[in-house]
Computed example of a mutant assay.
Amino acid sequence: MKHSFLFDLDASYIVVFLFFFMLIAIRIGYTIGFKKPKKDSDDFGILSSLLGLLALLLAFTFGMAGSRYENRRTNLINEANSIGTAILRSDVYPDSLKKVYKADFQTYLNARIDYFESNRDDDKINSSLKKSEEYSKKLWNRASFYAKNKDYFIQSNMMLPALNDMFDAASSTNTVYNSAVPESIVYLLLVFSIIISFYIGYSSGSKKVMDKYFIVGFCFLSCVVILVTLDLDRPRRGLIDLGNEISLLKELKSNF
């Protein structure tokens, strides 16, 4: 699992720190601007351009996080469907083989559920991946072995493609589940928010007027959008999760 200072730090802490840094930047900018002679010219156009640039950066980052969230959701649903199909294909085998298949499918399914519910515990994540890989090999080896037996030729022709789709779906899900917005973009968003705050304060200082409600509202709403963006980008924690999609995997337990 990915580890870094920014990624390991809770999103709520990030936005709380950002909120106060933005207020501090505004105060510093106001102090500097207040010391200069009052200008007759209006720099509203420049400030609007900077705010528009911040809005564009917020929208771009939010879009990246949202697309990754949707990819995780779609791939998890596809994996649940693939596992369900493979489990049903075991019914075409005789009872003796069907029981063995379903026992392995049950262990594999539990390992995949554990993977998604391991939060940020590296040991649990690695253990679940190892177990799912172990039982995926067992399932494939058994299916390929019986594919050489003419008595199970039809059953194997049904099972092998289903297993292949199941493994491909798991591989895709693992990849997109760990994907995240590049940290350089997140850092740029955070730093740019503070810089814009400084210019807002500087503009207010040069006019000798500070609208506290506007400033607090701007900082608060910007931090809320950033919080939601970070929450979307972190599937193993936060308020926005994939609980409904993971429940699809749990519902497959009814097949055993």
Rank of each mutant, 00 (worst) to 15 (best):
V181L: 01
F20V: 08
S67G: 11
A162C: 07
Y177N: 13
L252T: 09
L58P: 06
Y202P: 05
L58H: 06
D121N: 10
A25E: 06
L230G: 03
Y115R: 06
S197E: 04
A59Y: 02
T173V: 10
T61D: 06
I240M: 04
S204R: 11
D91Y: 02
Y199G: 01
E133M: 03
S128H: 05
D168F: 13
R73G: 09
F34E: 10
A25N: 08
A162I: 02
S12E: 12
F7N: 11
L160Q: 10
E134I: 09
E245W: 09
S254I: 11
R89T: 05
S118A: 15
G52L: 00
V224C: 03
S197C: 04
F145A: 12
A59F: 11
F167Y: 12
E133C: 03
I194G: 06
V181A: 07
A55D: 06
L6I: 06
I200E: 06
Y30R: 00
Y135C: 00
K102E: 03
G201L: 00
L9P: 00
F7Y: 15
F5I: 09
K148R: 11
N244Q: 12
E117K: 14
R27Y: 02
R234L: 04
N141A: 07
I240C: 01
L230K: 01
H3S: 15
G205Y: 00
I113L: 03
S156N: 07
N75L: 13
F256L: 13
G201Y: 08
I195Q: 06
L50H: 01
Y13L: 10
N75E: 12
S144P: 08
F19S: 09
G63V: 12
Y115Q: 00
Y69M: 07
K250W: 04
V216E: 04
S204Y: 14
N149Y: 02
S156H: 06
F256V: 15
M166G: 05
N119K: 15
K138M: 10
F116Q: 10
V228P: 04
K137S: 14
D104R: 07
N126A: 10
M64S: 11
Y152F: 15
S48Q: 13
I83D: 07
S48D: 14
V176R: 06
I154T: 10
L239P: 05
S12N: 10
S4H: 01
G52D: 07
V92L: 05
N110C: 02
K138R: 13
I226H: 05
F145L: 13
Q155S: 11
V15H: 08
I226M: 10
A180C: 05
G84Q: 09
Y146G: 01
E245T: 11
A103M: 07
S193D: 03
I194F: 03
S204K: 11
V209K: 15
A111S: 15
E245Y: 10
S4N: 08
S247N: 13
E133Y: 08
A147P: 08
T173F: 12
S247A: 15
L221H: 06
F116T: 02
S136Y: 00
S49P: 04
D104W: 10
N164H: 10
L53D: 05
K98I: 01
V225H: 04
